[in-house]
């Protein structure tokens, strides 16, 4: 009798795991009602995904074809329309969410916040990597050097190291709450460090005159429009990927629970 009741609760769990976000409500408890593929994604998520990808494609069109060629820098300047938004998404929302969710986890001890922090850090590193790779490719033909120790560049590099360290810390711990706790400690310290890093590097570079600055780019109104649109598109993509990744991590943790139950039987 106990086996049966446990079995049916497990089935319900399986269904919840498949449903991901828990939007399926009560639902039937029979196993045949579970379809691993198909309708388990809520509609709004698909709409968000289509909107994100479509707007990134529109931004691509705007950046490559619609925007006029920059007078001084020429075609290479078109990298900027994706370089700057990636930097913004990583340094702004992505790493700030790691910080906020780290604090919330330590207060509430809810692993969901840890998963959000982990997913956001992953995306932050992804977008920082894009920033760090596109920057030099843009700088080389214009300034003649791939890298300059410009404050923004250097801060971005240090930031990249901090959050790669954060991900490495996460990957070296397996147990859920322990990983959440320790990575939250590092996530908070790392984020507080960022403005200090920026200030220190800025002082460092102003004491020794900067060779190259990022200023002096003239953006006309259509260029600005493309930039703002690309900013929105990349932000939307970030939100979409974050939701998908968090749901996936949620699902993974439910499966882990199920697996434990299956071992118990």
């Amino acid at each position: 009798m106990t086996t049966v009741s446990r079995g049916s609760s497990v089935e319900h769990d399986t269904q919840a795991a498949v449903a991901g976000g828990g939007s399926s409500g009560g639902g039937a408890t029979t196993a045949t009602a579970v379809h691993p593929t198909g309708a388990e994604r809520p509609l709004w998520l698909d709409v968000l995904g289509v909107a994100a990808i479509a707007s990134v494609l529109v931004a691509l069109y705007g950046a490559i074809i619609w925007a006029p060629t920059e007078a001084v820098m020429g075609h290479v300047q078109r990298i900027f329309y994706f370089h700057m938004p990636s930097a913004w998404v990583a340094l702004g929302p992505a790493f700030t969410i790691v910080f906020i969710c780290s604090i919330v986890y330590l207060v509430k001890k809810d692993l969901r916040y840890d998963r959000i922090a982990g997913a956001s850090a992953e995306l932050g590193v992804l977008f920082t990597t894009i920033t760090l790779l596109t920057g030099p490719l843009w700088a080389k033909p214009i300034w003649g050097a791939y890298w300059t120790w410009d404050p923004r560049l250097t801060t971005t590099l240090v930031l990249w190291f901090i959050y790669v360290a954060y991900l490495m810390l996460r990957s070296s711990i397996t147990e859920g709450h322990r990983r959440a706790r320790l990575s939250a400690v590092f996530g908070i310290v790392g984020w507080i460090d960022v403005p200090i890093v920026f200030m220190s590097i800025r002082w460092w570079r102003t004491i020794h005159p900067t060779l190259v600055t990022g200023e002096g780019m003239n953006l006309d109104s259509s260029m600005q429009a493309v930039l703002v649109f690309a900013l929105g598109a990349i932000s939307l993509l970030y939100v979409y990927l974050l939701v998908v990744r968090v749901r996936q991590l949620d699902m993974g943790s439910r499966i882990d629970r199920l697996r434990q139950q299956s071992h118990l039987r």
């Binding site: 240090v158 190291f161 901090i162 790669v164 360290a165 490495m168 810390l169 070296s172 590092f186 310290v189 790392g190 460090d193 200090i196 890093v197 200030m199 220190s200 590097i201």
Partner: peptide, 13 residues
């Protein structure tokens, strides 16, 4: 390894 990786970037300033 992890202590160096965690500490050095935070020590930059």
């Amino acid at each position: 390894v992890i202590l160096s990786i965690l500490l050095i970037p935070v020590m930059v300033p």
